[in-house]
Simulated scan of single mutants.
Amino acid sequence: MKFAVTSRGDDLSNDLQKRIKEQLMKHGLVFNQHEPELVITIGGDGTLLQAFHDYAKRLEETAFVGIHTGHLGFYADWVPSEVDQLIDDIVHKPFQVVEYPLLEVIIHHNQDEGERHLALNESTIKGLGGSIVSNVEIKGDTFEVFRGDGLCISTPSGSTAYNKALGGAILHPSLASIQISEMASINNRVYRTIGSPLVLPKHHVCLLRPLNEVEVQVTIDHYTLEYRHIHSLQCRVADERIRFARYRSFPFWKRVKESFIRE
């Protein structure tokens, strides 16, 4: 099996990266950064997010497993004290593939094909220097006209990130869906929004069409893009999915509990 190991860059993560690489190669696995079948990330959720974007064109061939070396990572199954067990499992056990839905975002500048991006957690659109006014269209029909700081569109696994801070619901990743949450909406006689997060299924497309001339900032996970103007932001559940390598059971709700309410 071909593998790659990525590190957050701190001393502990770098030491584990070197150790895992040496041990797996000693057991006959092939280190290959360009075409890995398994990517081991060492650090936190940000490290795994970066690895996801680095290998976004290999999602059908590549699975991910995470080791957290700081605070508990939501995507990471393992801690440094369990590295020997993980190495043994990788060498001797086939992994179970667990797939999570992704968000597809297409940024249209005019009536063009647009820039296509994939997000594991979320995408946001905000006004720079002022509120953003935007049509929110669902399945081709205008649902509302939003005015406020911006909107967050999240995946089920990303529902525990920025979406949660905005008061959105936590969704199980078995639900192929996206969630739209508001950032400080302005409601008056002219502008009226639903005021609650919206959960859209796989076959529904959401189109955000800015109506004012404010410059916009679009984020794709941890990447930030700024534009003087965009025609629209199209969001839907992506055809692609991220594949995680599971060597042991780690139920989603257990992750949620340990991440947020475990004492």
Rank of each mutant, 00 (worst) to 15 (best):
M1S: 07
F3K: 05
F3L: 01
F3T: 02
A4E: 07
T6A: 06
T6R: 11
S7P: 08
R8T: 04
R19L: 14
K21H: 15
E22Q: 14
M25G: 12
H27A: 15
L29K: 14
L29D: 09
V30H: 09
F31V: 07
F31E: 15
Q33G: 04
H34R: 15
P36C: 10
V39L: 02
T41G: 06
I42E: 07
I42L: 10
G43W: 13
G46F: 03
L49F: 02
L49E: 00
F52I: 06
A56S: 13
A56Y: 11
R58D: 09
E60F: 11
E60N: 10
E61D: 12
E61T: 10
T62S: 08
T62W: 05
A63W: 05
A63L: 01
A63I: 01
V65W: 01
V65L: 05
G66R: 07
G70S: 00
H71M: 12
H71G: 09
H71C: 08
Y75I: 07
Y75N: 01
P80E: 04
E82Q: 12
V83W: 05
D89I: 05
K93N: 10
Q96P: 06
Q96A: 11
V97A: 10
Y100L: 01
E104F: 11
H108E: 00
H108M: 00
Q111S: 15
E113G: 10
G114I: 13
A119W: 08
L120Q: 03
T124K: 03
V133G: 07
V136Q: 15
T142Q: 15
T142C: 13
F143P: 11
E144W: 03
V145H: 07
V145E: 09
F146A: 05
R147P: 08
G150A: 01
L151S: 07
T155K: 04
G158Q: 06
A161I: 02
N163Q: 13
A165P: 08
G167N: 01
S174C: 07
S177F: 03
I178Q: 05
I178F: 08
Q179F: 04
S185L: 04
N187Y: 02
V190P: 08
V190S: 13
T193E: 12
T193M: 12
I194N: 03
I194Y: 08
I194G: 03
P197M: 02
L198I: 14
L198G: 01
V199E: 00
H203I: 12
H204A: 14
C206A: 13
L207A: 14
R209A: 05
E213H: 13
E215C: 12
E215I: 09
Q217S: 12
T219H: 04
H222T: 12
H222A: 11
E226P: 05
R228L: 11
H231V: 05
S232I: 04
R241P: 03
I242Q: 06
A245M: 00
A245Y: 03
R246F: 11
F250T: 11
F252K: 04
W253G: 02
V256H: 02
S259W: 01
F260E: 01
I261Q: 02
